[in-house]
C-alpha cells in the first residue's frame, strides 16, 4: 500500500479519532472477587477496534483472545435485555449500546456498576433491584383482569397510553440506581427504577391498585427520599426518564396532579 505522507495540517488533531480503519485501544478491566476477599485490580489489554465496535465487543474480544475468565453478563447485545450495565470511563452505561468511538479516548476503563454488590469482575447482583421492582406490584390490578371468553378488551385511547408508555420501556438495567445519589448512601431506598415502575402502573387507567402501591412507596425509604437530582434520567438508555415519573407520582400523592 502506498503511503502518502500527510501534511501537518491534514494530520488528525488528536490520536483519539477512530476512523473506518482499525485502531488499537487500551481496555482496562476491573477484576475482583469480593466474596473470596479479592480486591479490585485492573487488567489491561490492547484491543483492535473499528468505528462501530461496542465496548461489549471489545470485552468479548479480550475473552476470546486473552483471558476467558473475565466475568461479564450480557445477552441481547442490542440494549434490550438490560444485562450489560457497567461503569464505562466513570459513568454507568450499557456496554452493548456504547461505541468505543463515541468515548473519544484511546483508554477505556470498565468497572462494575456502583450501588450493587459485585459478584465478580463486571457482573453485579440484581437481587435488590428485582425485589424492589416486585414490591411495586408491576402488573395491572383489578378484579376482572382474567380474560374470559365473555370479557372484552380494556379500551384505552392513544392519550391514555401516552401517560405510561415511556415508563413501560424500562429494561431493568439498573443504570439509574447506580447513578442515584440517594442510592449511594441509603441501602434501603427503593430506587429510581422501582419508583418509576410504581408510576407506570399508577398512571395506567386500567389499573385499580393505586392504594396498595402508594402504601409501599409512602415510606421513609420510599419516594420522599428522592431529591430530584436527575442523574437517573441522565443515564437511562431507554428514555424512561425515571426522575419525571417520580416527580409526577409525588405530585399525584401531594394532590397537585390528577
Amino acid at each position: 500500500m502506498a503511503v502518502v505522507a500527510a501534511k501537518p495540517s491534514e494530520e488528525p488533531k488528536s490520536n483519539t479519532k477512530i476512523t473506518g480503519q482499525t485502531n488499537t485501544i487500551t481496555l482496562r478491566i476491573s477484576r475482583s472477587n469480593p466474596s473470596e476477599g479479592q480486591e479490585s485490580t485492573f487488567a489491561e489489554f490492547q484491543v483492535p477496534v473499528q468505528k462501530w465496535t461496542t465496548v461489549l465487543e471489545a470485552i468479548l474480544y479480550v475473552k476470546q483472545n486473552f483471558d476467558h475468565s473475565v466475568a461479564v453478563r450480557y445477552s441481547c447485545r442490542q440494549a434490550s435485555c438490560g444485562s450489560c450495565g457497567m461503569k464505562i470511563n466513570g459513568r454507568p452505561a450499557l456496554a452493548c449500546y456504547t461505541k468505543v468511538s463515541e468515548l473519544n479516548s484511546n483508554v477505556v476503563t470498565v468497572e462494575p456498576m456502583n450501588n450493587f454488590p459485585i459478584i465478580r469482575d463486571l457482573a453485579v447482583d440484581f437481587k435488590q433491584l428485582i425485589s424492589n421492582h416486585k414490591k411495586m406490584k408491576p402488573f395491572i390490578i383489578r378484579e376482572d383482569s382474567e380474560v374470559t371468553p365473555e370479557s372484552k378488551e380494556f379500551i384505552q385511547t392513544p392519550q391514555d397510553l401516552e401517560k405510561f408508555l415511556q415508563f413501560s420501556y424500562c429494561i431493568k438495567c439498573g443504570l439509574c440506581n447506580s447513578a442515584c445519589p440517594t442510592m449511594a448512601t441509603d441501602e434501603s431506598f427503593i430506587g429510581p427504577q422501582g419508583l418509576a415502575q410504581a408510576y407506570r402502573y399508577v398512571a395506567d387507567n386500567r389499573d385499580k391498585g393505586k392504594d396498595e402501591r402508594l402504601k409501599v412507596i409512602d415510606d421513609s425509604h420510599g419516594i420522599w427520599r428522592c431529591h430530584f437530582a436527575g442523574s437517573c434520567s441522565h443515564v437511562c438508555p431507554k428514555g424512561v426518564d425515571p426522575a419525571m415519573a417520580i416527580q409526577l407520582l409525588r405530585g399525584y400523592m401531594l394532590g397537585f396532579r390528577k
Binding site: 401516552e162 401517560k163 405510561f164 408508555l165 415511556q166 415508563f167 420501556y169 398512571a203 428522592c226 430530584f228 436527575g230 434520567s233 441522565h234 437511562c236 438508555p237 431507554k238 428514555g239 424512561v240 426518564d241 426522575a243 419525571m244 415519573a245 416527580q247 409526577l248 407520582l249 409525588r250 405530585g251 399525584y252 401531594l254 397537585f256 396532579r257
Partner: peptide
C-alpha cells in the same frame, strides 16, 4: 415545584437519542 410534578415535562413517546424531558 419539581417535587410537586410542576415543570418536569410531559410523558410521551421516547425518540432516539432519548433526551429526558425532565432535564
Amino acid at each position: 415545584l419539581g417535587h410537586g410534578g410542576i415543570g418536569v415535562g410531559k410523558p410521551g413517546q421516547p425518540e432516539y437519542p432519548y433526551k429526558a424531558a425532565s432535564l
